[in-house]
Simulated scan of single mutants.
Amino acid sequence: MTKIMEKQQNWHPISMPPMLSTMISGQLEEAKNQYENLFKAQSKPYVLNDEILERVIKVFSEQLDFICLYENQISKWHDEETLTTKLEADLAKSQSQLQELSTVVPNILALADQLKSGTIEKVMKKSDLELGLEFFNK
């Protein structure tokens, strides 16, 4: 369990959904962009270094925890508040985006883990013979 989940969740007032929606939308957009970038790097993982991939893994692992916190907050608002139609629609949109984020983030983590074996540091450690054999086996 990460540090985020070890702490008690801070609950927010019903005035927060617009800010929460903005945060979720931004994270989803960034996650999609990151996935696209990593996907493009599949054919040439040597353009990445260990530090980049470690950072991607750290950031998106933490983001998985935030998804859970966001879902908890939205559920609490549903359970404890009388919601307007607009607020209900906004929360539904946020929940939909969280579901998409719940798919994209694990895909990013899996792809980053896959790419770790081909970073520039890993390539530079290989002998000419190893590199040559890999080239001809493709």
Rank of each mutant, 00 (worst) to 15 (best):
T22H: 03
K126V: 13
P18H: 00
D65P: 10
K7N: 06
V59P: 01
N137A: 09
A89V: 06
L101T: 04
L109D: 04
E100I: 13
N49V: 07
E62C: 11
V123R: 06
L87A: 06
N33D: 14
H78C: 03
V47C: 02
V105I: 06
E81R: 01
G132K: 10
G132W: 12
A110G: 14
E100R: 05
T119G: 07
Q8R: 15
A89I: 06
L48T: 02
Q63N: 10
V47L: 10
K7H: 01
M124V: 11
M19L: 12
E51L: 14
E130D: 07
I67S: 00
L83G: 05
E121I: 07
M16Y: 12
Q97T: 00
A110V: 03
S102V: 06
E54R: 12
V59C: 09
M23R: 04
K44W: 07
E36C: 02
L129M: 13
E51Q: 12
S94P: 08
W11L: 10
N107Q: 10
N49L: 07
A31H: 03
F39E: 15
E30I: 05
P18A: 05
K122P: 08
E51D: 09
K76D: 12
V105Q: 02
Q42C: 12
V123S: 05
N107D: 08
F39D: 15
S43P: 01
L111S: 07
L131I: 07
K86P: 03
E121Y: 04
L20E: 04
H12A: 13
L91P: 09
M124T: 09
W11I: 00
V47A: 10
S15A: 13
